[in-house]
């Protein structure tokens, strides 16, 4: 499979703290890659550097390369805003815009950037909501506030919002950690479907989830990439002792 995103010797510093230490790996196209590891291991930091979210964190410094379709997204003259269009992100806690309706939330990526034609907007909203299997649940109350939805619905709405701007890569930062088991199951099914069209990278602290949804898994520990490879292999026959200790629950 093609590598959609590649890390080449990625280092992230926050002031003096060295959060990610020289990670190099590939994220295959149209598949799901999970990043696992105990909290504080730098997995979210890696994820957030893939769409340059650290640009706005004071004191954060990213070195090394992150290559998207053959080009380094940190090279000079590369606009982080354009990158974020191509690499969308779903966050830990569902974060719909509270002042907006369901409809406006889905179309937010367009509206916040300018105008969008009504007919096109309708189409985008419907297809995006269908994409995340939320259409039937909300089609009668598109104009009601997004905050009235349940947590799981809100998270699917956030995914729909991300899908609506037609990214190529979707980053997910522990997308189910604030949700109940049933909502989690729905999101996991959704991730399964999303990979047909997108490259999905998901950070999770839940190993079962990683085993269920991902094709490739990377294990980070104390800012270092310990091991990455085929999910089945990593969970059944890890190469590194640390990985084995972690997945068998000896620490973390």
């Amino acid at each position: 499979m093609n590598a959609k995103v590649q890390l080449e010797n990625l280092n992230v510093h926050f002031g003096k703290a060295h959060a990610v230490k020289g990670a190099s790996m590939e994220f295959p196209e149209n598949s799901v890659t999970a990043i696992i590891g105990p909290s504080g291991c730098g997995k979210s930091t890696v994820l957030r550097s893939i769409n340059r979210m650290h640009d706005l964190t004071p004191g954060a410094q990213v070195t090394g390369k992150i290559v998207l379709d053959g080009r380094d997204i940190y090279e000079k003259g590369c606009d982080p805003v354009a990158i974020r269009r191509r690499i969308g992100m779903v966050f830990q806690k569902p974060n719909p815009f509270p002042a907006m309706s369901i409809y406006d939330n889905v179309i937010a990526g367009y509206k916040l950037n300018g105008r969008v034609k009504r007919a096109e907007a309708d189409e985008i909203v419907e297809s995006s909501l269908r994409r995340v299997a939320l259409w039937d649940e909300v089609k009668d109350r598109l104009k009601s506030a997004a905050t009235n939805l349940s947590g799981g619905q809100q998270q699917r709405l956030c995914i729909a919002r991300t899908v609506a701007v037609k990214p190529e890569v979707i980053l997910m930062d522990e997308p189910c950690s604030a949700l109940d088991p049933i909502a989690t199951l729905k999101i996991e099914e959704l991730i399964e479907e999303l990979k047909e069209q997108y490259t999905v990278i998901i950070v999770t602290h839940n190993m079962q989830q990683a085993a269920r949804v991902s094709d490739t898994t990377a294990f980070f520990y104390l800012g270092e990439l310990v091991e990455y490879g085929d999910t089945k292999k990593l969970f059944t026959n890890p190469e590194q002792k640390q990985t084995e200790d972690y997945i068998t629950g000896r620490f973390g």
């Binding site: 979210m53 974020r84 269009r85 992100m89 966050f91 974060n95 919002r161």
Partner: peptide
């Protein structure tokens, strides 16, 4: 901050995010 991030992650520039979100 999650609202700012939500908007930025949609590829909205910082200035529009600040004004509109």
């Amino acid at each position: 901050n999650s609202l700012r991030e939500a908007s930025l992650a949609l590829g909205v520039p910082l200035w529009r995010t600040t004004l509109k979100v």
